[in-house]
Simulated assay, not measured.
Amino acid sequence: MARFLLIHGSAHGAWCYRELIPALTALGHQATAIDLPSHGDDPTPYQEATLSGYADRIVSELQAIGEEVILLGHSMGGYPISLAAERLPERVKHLVYLCAYVPKPGFSLNDRRREAEEQPLMEAIQLTEDGLGWTVGDDDLNRLFYHDCPPGTVDLAKAHLTIQAREPSTVSIETTARYAAIPRSYIRCINDGTIPPSYQVTMSEDWPSERVFSMDCGHSPFFADPTGLAGRLDQIARDIT
């Protein structure tokens, strides 16, 4: 079966895939999740975290795995998986954007976000004193990320969320035919409270219909419906074999 490498979004870490990995394993797949620099258990100071460093971490894991993977990025993770795929395309069999930002030439992630008609995240962002990172207040976590997740999810998140460095969202990436040649799929979350569902449609509206999927959930399907998400990923894996 397939080998998955799972990349988290802003402020999260490998911990957010703790329910998805066993769900994929139950379907016969292998799955690994990693912490990007300054996230989860990684000790890198957020002031030193960069988009290029995120991609380097993914490339290092791809090299360690030593075989082609289905590379999934959630939310912000859409940018670093794209850059990593550009750098090491021979190890990426398929890209999956899970309610994620898809790079556009000359556009940073922040530029892409500003294209959306709504900005639900912006009113909740709290900058660090040095201005190099941000967090989201506890009162906004449920509304933005976990409104349809099981009891205890917000407490789990509070214990593990980290400061999100600003730099990775402020730089654009240049991709070539190396990246463009890799097949990709998009999973839209139609009740997303962070990335407007309409903008997820915009980012994937010109993709082949068979490569676009939807889930009736919010921004964290790995908590809200890990079994359903594993089923979508299993379908993607079967379609590309």
Rank of each mutant, 00 (worst) to 15 (best):
N110Y: 12
D140P: 00
P221E: 02
W134F: 15
C16K: 03
Q235L: 11
L109H: 02
P197A: 03
G193H: 08
Y179Q: 05
V154E: 00
Q164A: 06
C217L: 05
W15M: 02
Q164H: 15
F107T: 07
E174Y: 02
Q235H: 07
E68A: 08
T175M: 12
C189D: 10
A116V: 11
A100C: 04
P197T: 05
P89T: 00
S52H: 14
L127V: 11
Q126D: 12
H94F: 14
Y179H: 06
A14Y: 00
P197C: 08
S52W: 07
P80S: 07
G131S: 08
D148T: 07
G73K: 02
I240L: 15
L83K: 00
P168F: 06
T128N: 07
D225T: 12
R238D: 15
D216I: 09
Y186P: 03
T153E: 09
P226T: 01
L62K: 02
L144F: 10
E48I: 01
C99V: 06
R188F: 09
H29Q: 11
R178L: 12
I236G: 10
P103A: 04
V59W: 01
Y79T: 01
S214D: 14
Q47T: 14
S82T: 01
M215S: 10
L88E: 14
A84V: 01
A33V: 08
Y17L: 04
E19S: 15
P150Y: 03
Q119S: 14
G77S: 10
H160I: 05
Y146H: 10
Y79G: 01
L5P: 08
H39L: 10
R112V: 15
E117H: 11
G53N: 05
A181R: 13
D239F: 09
E61W: 03
A224L: 03
P150T: 12
P208T: 01
P43N: 02
T32V: 15
G73H: 05
R91W: 09
W134L: 12
D148H: 03
F222S: 04
Q235S: 09
A180N: 12
Q119F: 14
A165I: 01
T162L: 11
L95F: 09
I125D: 12
S10Y: 02
A26V: 01
S209R: 13
E117W: 06
Y46P: 02
C189K: 04
G77T: 01
E90I: 02
I125H: 06
D192V: 02
G53S: 05
V212M: 13
I7A: 07
N191M: 13
S220W: 02
P103M: 00
T153C: 04
G133L: 03
I21G: 04
P105E: 13
L5G: 12
R3I: 14
R166H: 10
L71Y: 06
R211D: 14
Y97G: 07
R178P: 07
D42L: 09
H219G: 08
A84W: 00
Y179W: 11
L27T: 07
D35R: 05
D111L: 01
L88H: 07
D216F: 08
L229Q: 08
E90R: 06
R3W: 13
I190Q: 13
G193T: 11
H12P: 03
A31W: 02
T175E: 00
A23V: 05
A237T: 12
A159E: 12
P105T: 03
Y97W: 04
E115P: 03
G40V: 06
S108T: 10
P183H: 04
S185E: 09
R178D: 15
G231D: 13
A84F: 01
